[in-house]
Simulated scan of single mutants.
Amino acid sequence: MAKKIATVITDMFEDVEYTDPVKAFKDAGHEIVTIEKEKGKQVTGKQNDETITIDQGIDDVKPDDFDALFIPGGFSPDQLRADDRFVKFAKKFMDDKKPVLAICHGPQLLITAKSLEGRKATGFKSIQVDMEYAGANLVDQEVAVCQNQLVTSRQPDDIPAFNRESLNVLK
Rank of each mutant, 00 (worst) to 15 (best):
K41R: 13
D67K: 01
K171P: 12
F66T: 00
H105I: 03
V33Q: 10
K88V: 02
V16F: 05
M131G: 09
V145Y: 13
K46D: 03
M131L: 09
K41Q: 15
D65P: 02
F25L: 06
P21C: 12
F75T: 01
F75K: 07
D78H: 03
F86S: 04
D84L: 00
S115F: 07
V33H: 09
I111F: 04
S126L: 13
F93P: 15
Q47T: 14
Q128V: 05
G73H: 03
I58F: 13
T152G: 14
Q108V: 05
K26I: 03
L109A: 02
D84E: 08
D49P: 09
V143I: 10
K98Q: 12
S76D: 06
L80W: 02
P156E: 09
E117S: 12
Q128E: 14
V169Q: 04
F75R: 06
E142I: 12
D49L: 15
V87H: 10
R154W: 03
A113E: 08
F93N: 14
G57E: 11
K37D: 12
I5W: 10
N168R: 08
A136F: 11
N148T: 11
G73A: 04
K39E: 14
L69R: 01
Q147I: 13
E132A: 07
D15M: 06
D95Q: 12
V151L: 05
E117D: 12
S76W: 01
L69I: 00
S153W: 03
Q108H: 06
V100T: 12
T112Q: 14
Q141K: 14
I103N: 13
F25N: 06
I9K: 13
A161K: 08
I103E: 13
S76N: 04
P99Y: 00
T53L: 12
S76H: 03
T7F: 05
D83V: 00
K91R: 10
D95I: 04
K41M: 07
A68E: 00
C104A: 11
A121I: 01
V129A: 15
L167P: 12
D27G: 07
